[in-house]
Nucleic acid binder design. Structure first.
Lengths: 117, 117
DNA sequence: CTACTTGTACTACCATCGTAGTACAATCCG
DNA sequence: CGGATTGTACTACGATGGTAGTACAAGTAG
């Protein structure tokens, strides 16, 4: 998995689990780049993408921060839509492999007990 | 989505839904290539991959056929394993987006009523 | 054996993607 | 204003992936 995708996922996860809170500042593009031994541009792209999707806010000369936008109602609806799309892709793939919705449900339910997220 | 992936999926689907039965012959590599306006090699790669995974059997000079192997017990176990892997990937992605297993279950269950596969 | 049909190996080309390098622009702060 | 800090645009390079072209190999059928 490419670096930028890993980073995106990591930040999203940190926010989703509360390890990064609304308003909190993220490391500077360059700081994080050095720390991760990655080009500054790669970090910048991630920040930019997350800004487009409304999870971050960036102010030049200051830094990048966790946006509050993903708490309002509109964003919740969008989030729901993303879940639906994810499930769509999932179903399609499973379908091509010959699995039914019920198969998936069974499998998921057995996970629920093992690793309750 | 690349041609070879589309084709793979289509064949898998056809077999899973019974539109292609065990023992039945598939079009020749070249036939299908012409029909789909695709290079013969692309079709060949798909056939080869499906043979490796045990869904097809190929006999030079004769043709390619739907294998019976995917009906036996071993293959069922493998199939199960693939399902687990698929669910793993799915869970990881959903997790990175901040969804819990329960969210997914809800979403899936609402699908079950609408499009019963 | 020979002609024909089948799948296959090898190669090369083109597009796309991911990343890095460098130079630029906006903002802050003294 | 002017230096420092922030994010950003542009470019280029390397790697990978997908497809096509061509030539080959294995098997069948007469």
């Amino acid at each position: 998995m490419p670096l930028y995708a890993q980073l995106t996922r990591a930040i999203r996860f940190a926010i989703a689990t509360g390890r990064l809170r609304v308003g909190e500042q993220l490391p500077t593009v360059r700081q994080l780049a050095v720390e991760l031994r990655v080009n500054a541009n790669t970090v910048a792209r991630v920040y930019a993408e997350l800004e487009r999707s409304g999870t971050l806010e960036t102010r030049r000369g200051v830094g990048t921060f966790v946006s509050a936008r993903h708490l309002d109602g509109n964003h919740h609806e969008e989030h729901e839509k993303h879940l639906q799309e994810l499930v769509d892709r999932f179903l399609e793939e499973a379908n091509a492999m010959g699995f039914s919705v019920d198969d998936l449900l069974d499998q998921l339910q057995s996970r629920r007990k093992k690793e309750p997220n």
